[in-house]
Amino acid sequence: MDSLLIKNLRASVAGQEILRGLSLQVPKGEVHAIMGPNGSGKSTLSKVVCGHPDYEVHSGEIFLDGEPILELEPDQRARLGLFLAFQYPCEIAGVSNANFLRAALQARLPKGEEIDAVAYYKRLYEKMDMLEMDRKFTARSVNDGFSGGEKKRNEILQLAMLDPKYAILDETDSGLDIDALRIVADGVNRLRGPNIGILLITHYQRLLNYIVPDVVHVMVKGRIVRSGGKELALDLEEKGYDWILKECAEEISA
């Protein structure tokens, strides 16, 4: 089965262990959500999977459709089909959105092959229309002077354009008002399908009303401690995280 498979992953940043033997499988075609209290290591997980140089992996394995990726550079992982929608997207002054996306797509082509500019813009405009983005947006510098909502929408546009096999959405709902959340969620829902596995990282259940997950995982102190259906998210919303912390106290401290 094609999947993004994480096995027994241990990783630290600045000498502190954050992921403590985490295992998770996101099969292609499914949407999984990871929820967890602040500090449980959710964002660290997304960075480690994508190869951020600040994080050190001590043990464990990550496979993308069976291929081990831990030894690969971040860009190699990206070109294999891994995408991260950042919680805090970076600004790149002087580089237009259109040129940035074009460069990213160009990087996926074999040497000597050129992107068809006409087809590229046609597709770009389609995706922008889907996300209700103004055409002027193509000429603006990447995330430069964007509002929080515009940045998040831009992440989803990039996701739509780069067409990854697996996408991790890190707190995509944070900083979005209800209209922007609806547009972003509609965009993600339209991208859902048999050819993509999606991992939503979120602190709140709110996003999951709009993007309904197939599986919900609860992450506490660097591990997945519970997995279940979408109703698990509703339980957490209703009861908070405390009951789960109590229930797994032994597991967590191990």
Binding site: G51, H52, P53, E73, P74, D75, C90, G94, A103, A104
Partner: peptide
């Protein structure tokens, strides 16, 4: 480093990412 990581995550090599930053700076 965050900016470079961001661009690498989109599939650009480290050199391409830096080059894009520099070109953006003088654009």
């Amino acid at each position: 480093a965050e900016q470079i990581f961001y661009m690498q995550q989109r599939g650009l090599s480290e050199a391409q990412a830096m080059s894009l930053s520099v070109n953006g700076f003088v654009n």
